[in-house]
Amino acid sequence: MSVQPGKRRVTSPAISDRDGRFSRRLDPASVQFFVSAVEEGSIARAASRENIVPSAISKRLSDLEALLGVALLERGTQGVIPTPAGEAFLHHARLLLRAVERMRLEMAEYSEGVRGHIRVRASASALSAGLPAEIQSFSRAHRQVKIELEEYETPAIVQDIREGRADVGIGPDILQPEPLKLIPWRHYDLSAVVPDGHALARRRKLSYSALLQYEQVEQGYSSALSQLLDYAARQSGLAKRTRIRVRGFEAVCRMIGSGMGIGVAPSFMRESLGEVYGLRFIPLDEPWAHPKICIMLRDLDSLPNAARSFVDHLRRSATAAGRDGD
């Protein structure tokens, strides 16, 4: 490869090392200083934020660039902005700092007797399909493992798993999230939900287009089911009139029961909510109305031991549920 006259080709032997010297020389403090400089747009403001003199933070950043063999920041009179390489490094830097912080927190928990920490993100459908009972069962057998459970809509679950903010996600496979690994956990059907006495209440099955004659009650725009229903409405060629959007299936059913419209929800919610709100659940006769709730992972082999044990527990419960359904 030729190099133009007057141009200096920058190489970085450290990055090409295969014996781990690069990772040993990469200083998390310098990585933090870089992130602060980008976020503040100024080395002086980053130095104030990190409680260090500007000359020291500037030296750390220069050393970091020398280690990587590329310029990470463009320095000017107005401050600093990341170069294209700096933008790429920023993504990895934030992942690294989150991992270091998580390591610090987990080690603190170990010192207090905790023997594992699992970050779980679950959809409303997963919570309604029996996930709390599975977590309780796992926790009884692993009392020193801490489970951090948060309910998110499916697109946010996928993003948190992809970006390393969660270990395990449980939600419907409606989005087909690439490149996550999906392990089927529960199968379920979607039903039209209408109040008792509604014109559609005595039908045995319904096409989704039949629902579009009426005002709809749905979850928020960002939910996976709402995105699926938007797509189904477009495919039907009919306009969908959504009267109200709420969070969670119980809120959807409550609004339908109060006469605000009709909607779609998992069929298994009939037992807990049908009688409470005076609702009829009518199976949808559509190929897309039979999704699976899946365990979502980046990579099973890279999971911490506690998280892998939790996934194994869920897989055993899925197998048992399949046998029960035979």
Rank of each mutant, 00 (worst) to 15 (best):
A56I: 15
K59V: 00
R25P: 06
G20E: 06
S23T: 11
R49N: 12
E39R: 10
E40Y: 00
I52N: 06
S23H: 11
S62C: 11
A56Y: 15
S62N: 13
V53C: 12
S48W: 07
S23C: 09
G20A: 03
D27Y: 00
Q32P: 00
A44C: 02
A44M: 09
I52V: 15
S58L: 13
I52L: 15
I57Q: 12
S36N: 08
S58Y: 14
V31D: 01
L26C: 02
L61C: 03
S36D: 13
V35R: 03
R45D: 13
S62P: 00
S55D: 15
R25I: 02
V35A: 05
F34T: 07
F22Y: 09
R60E: 05
P54H: 01
A46P: 03
F22H: 04
A46G: 07
K59E: 14
A47V: 07
V53S: 14
E40F: 00
L64P: 15
S23P: 01
I43A: 02
A37I: 03
V35I: 08
K59W: 13
A37L: 04
R49K: 15
S48Y: 04
S55I: 13
F33R: 08
V38H: 08
A46M: 05
V53W: 09
S23N: 11
S36M: 08
E50V: 06
E50T: 10
A37Q: 04
R24F: 06
I57A: 10
P54L: 00
S42R: 00
E39G: 06
G41C: 02
R60S: 12
V31I: 10
F33E: 03
A56E: 14
E40T: 01
S55F: 12
V35E: 05
A29W: 02
V38F: 10
A44S: 10
Q32C: 05
K59R: 15
L61P: 04
P54E: 00
A47Y: 10
N51R: 14
E39L: 08
I52K: 13
A47I: 05
P28R: 00
S30L: 03
R49D: 10
E39S: 09
L64Q: 07
Q32M: 07
A29I: 06
S48L: 11
L26S: 01
R25V: 02
R60I: 00
S23Q: 13
V31G: 03
G41Y: 03
S30G: 08
S36V: 03
S58T: 07
R24A: 14
S58R: 14
E50W: 08
V31L: 04
E40C: 12
A44T: 12
